[in-house]
């Protein structure tokens, strides 16, 4: 492709052609750039418009397979800054508070373990110490979940390549799957599925769903993740061959602190639902007791039509 001809960017912004006054090579450099475009048609006021352009280079095993370009009208982005900044301040505060809580919990747990090692099996105090350790563990996982909740306060969004994100999360679970001899399959029916989303939050949703699936299946069970595109929707399904969800608890599983697990906090699905809804998506499930469960997360596909807020992904094959 050639950058010399401004036609390349026709349709990318509006249906008009623009001249780019800055070095157009920015489009192949990864990262954030500012591009000034000059309207070259005569019917409107002639002038420059500034865009924030974010480029991401997409790589596969063969090398670079494309470039994602996200453009944002500068004027618009300013408006939203105030709100999201104050939210991220709250999130950051909560996150550092959580870190402060972790250290004392850690030393308490450690000292209890030392005590545990020094007491003999017949000593009643050993049992007390064991209870204290498991209570500290409970506090720890609560704190961890709150950290997760704090992270959902950060609302900055970026273009997320769904299959790649799912692969990253699955990587975290490789060992646990192997340990439990789980047959895991990832089916990416459509590789080119992108979402405009907060990556950390989305990752958290998949972590929660995979963790639940892992906890639900017996040794040797199976877990499937399917990524697909259906009628303007992005669907991600997490399917397990686990114990299923009993009818009595079906309408409770998304409420905070509802859990049927000994060491559960009951925040996983609550947080996931909140995140998904923040992204204008839906989360639902169907379950067959004793046979398995499937959780489905659905997001509206980002439209690539052009409006005054210019969000789009543009996949260019550089090898051509």
């Amino acid at each position: 492709m050639s950058f010399g001809d401004s036609n390349v960017f026709e349709d990318l912004f509006t249906n008009r052609s623009y001249k780019i006054s800055e070095d157009p090579a920015v489009f192949v450099k990864e990262g954030a750039h500012t591009v000034v475009l000059e309207n070259k048609w005569q019917d409107e006021k002639r002038g420059c418009q500034t865009f924030n352009v974010n480029t991401t280079v997409v790589r596969n095993k063969q090398g670079v397979s494309g470039v994602i370009v996200y453009c944002e009208d500068e004027g618009k982005s300013e408006d939203n800054k105030g709100a999201s900044e104050s939210l991220s301040v709250i999130g950051e505060l909560a996150a550092s508070a959580v870190h402060e809580i972790k250290n004392p919990l850690f030393s308490i747990r450690g000292f209890l373990q030392i005590l545990d090692n020094t007491l003999s099996e017949s000593d009643k105090r050993k049992e007390y110490v064991k209870i204290m350790i498991s209570e500290v563990d409970r506090l720890e996982s609560l704190v961890k979940d709150f950290l997760m909740l704090a992270k959902t306060q950060n609302d900055s969004k970026e273009l997320v390549w769904v299959c790649e994100l799912v692969r990253e999360v699955v990587e975290l679970y490789k060992n646990s799957f192997e340990k439990k001899k789980i047959q895991f399959r990832l089916q990416a029916k459509d590789e080119s599925v992108f979402l405009w989303a907060n990556k950390d939050q989305l990752e958290q949703v998949f972590i929660n769903l995979l963790q639940n699936a892992l906890e639900a299946v017996e040794e040797g069970g199976s877990i499937d993740v399917i990524v697909s595109k259906k009628e303007e929707k992005v669907m991600i399904e997490v399917k397990d061959s686990g114990r299923g969800i009993s009818p009595e608890v079906r309408d409770k599983i998304f409420t905070p602190f509802f859990t049927t697990k000994k060491n559960g906090t009951g925040l996983g699905l609550f947080i996931s639902k909140r995140i998904v809804e923040n992204h204008e998506g839906k989360i639902y499930f169907s379950s067959d007791e004793g046979k398995g469960t499937i959780f489905i997360v659905e997001f509206p596909m980002r439209e690539t039509t052009v409006d005054d807020r210019l969000n789009l992904w543009y996949n260019v094959n550089l090898s051509e």
């Binding site: 250290n103 850690f106 030393s107 450690g110 000292f111 030392i114």
Partner: peptide
């Protein structure tokens, strides 16, 4: 730098 974390690790390893 957390005094009790340090102390706890030291004791556990000494043990």
């Amino acid at each position: 730098d957390q005094i009790w974390v340090r102390r706890m690790l030291l004791e556990a390893l000494q043990f």
